[in-house]
């Protein structure tokens, strides 16, 4: 008990440590990551009900789930979620850039880049929050839903072209903000030790992170922002999955996003669970959870929308 108490008080003291922007950016990254993970796990399971609902004899399962998402509380949560996804993405990009070009980074630049990340997050989040807020207002407060149905194709085209452009624009800002011209020091080859599990995981987090920014952002932009939860139903899912491309897209999303999330949780576990026995147990739990939820999601994507005959 005292050990747990000591860990807790250390944790609190750590949060109160007077670090600077880097410390804030780290706390923000963790919170955003954990929040997104929580949503992601629920989201995979409930979306899978498009397949499993009918199988289990509860065909209304998906529409029940969507109804919950349509509640005002969830819609507010969704707006926050979008902020988390944007921040985690841009800040992650910053970390990746740091790891790739560490010699660009000094104390002052790190302080600046935190504020740049916050500014870019707000800039991207503002229109999304406006659109989602508007939808929340129309559906839940004045109860005067717009008559026109969302044009899924137009939204998709918009998101698919705009987001990669944004992605590269952000990358450019971060890079140019760094000293692009700072020369890399001359090097020599060494016999680097064989890669350990931790090396591989670390590298996976970086590669998957880069990939996930367009993947997740396009997904979120279309589903949450442009189309909106009120326009999403079984038909919408069926329409999307009619295209093989979108199914592959969702498979990639499932694999990388949830993999990234579980490995992130592994980092958190390693950080806070020093007891080797419990550490191992929790990590096994993570693997099991990852396998189960990924399997559920994968089966649903392959199986597609099942409607009761």
């Amino acid at each position: 008990m005292t050990a747990i108490g000591a860990t807790m008080s250390l944790f609190v003291e750590g949060l109160l440590y007077r670090g600077r922007e880097g410390h804030l950016s780290y706390i923000g990254h963790r919170l955003a990551g954990l929040g997104t993970l929580l949503f992601l796990a629920i989201h995979i399971v409930d979306t899978s009900s498009v397949y499993f609902g009918a199988l289990l004899g509860v065909p209304e399962m998906y529409s029940h789930a969507i109804d919950i998402y349509r509640s005002p509380l969830f819609m507010v949560g969704e707006i926050v979620l979008v902020a988390a996804v944007i921040y985690h993405g841009i800040n992650g990009l910053k970390i990746i850039l740091h790891d790739t070009f560490p010699h660009w980074w000094n104390k002052g630049f790190e302080r600046q880049s935190f504020w740049k990340v916050v500014a870019m997050t707000l800039l991207l989040w503002a229109p999304a929050a406006y659109l989602m807020g508007r939808s929340l207002y129309l559906h839940s407060i004045c109860r005067c839903p717009p008559v026109e149905t969302a044009d899924v194709t137009a939204s998709t085209n918009f998101a698919v072209t705009a987001i990669p452009l944004l992605f590269f624009a952000i990358l450019a800002v971060l890079i140019v903000g760094g000293k692009l011209l700072a020369p890399a020091p001359a090097g020599r080859r060494v016999a680097a030790p064989p890669k350990t599990l931790d090396t591989h995981i670390w590298q996976f987090m970086r590669w998957s992170g880069v990939l996930l920014i367009p993947l997740v952002w396009i997904h979120v932009a279309i589903q949450d922002v442009l189309v909106g939860v009120h326009a999403i139903d079984l038909d919408f899912v069926a329409l999307r999955w009619a295209t093989l491309g979108w199914r592959l897209y969702d498979i990639a999303l499932l694999g990388f996003a949830f993999g990234h999330a579980i490995l992130g949780l592994r980092n958190v576990t390693n950080d806070y669970l020093a007891n080797p026995v419990w550490n191992r147990r929790v990590k096994w739990l993570l693997i099991i959870g990852w396998l189960v939820i990924t399997a559920i999601g994968a089966v649903a994507i392959v199986g597609g929308v099942m409607r009761p005959e």
Binding site: R20, G22, H23, H98, D99, P102, W105, W202
Partner: peptide
């Protein structure tokens, strides 16, 4: 990459940068 180390260093060593360089050496050989 929290940068608390770099901020705390009384000798102004860019600690996080040096750690980053070691990571790079490990990843790239």
């Amino acid at each position: 990459t929290v940068f608390n180390c770099t901020e705390a260093c009384p000798r102004d060593i860019p600690v996080t940068q040096l750690i980053g360089e070691v990571k790079r050496a490990l990843a790239t050989g």
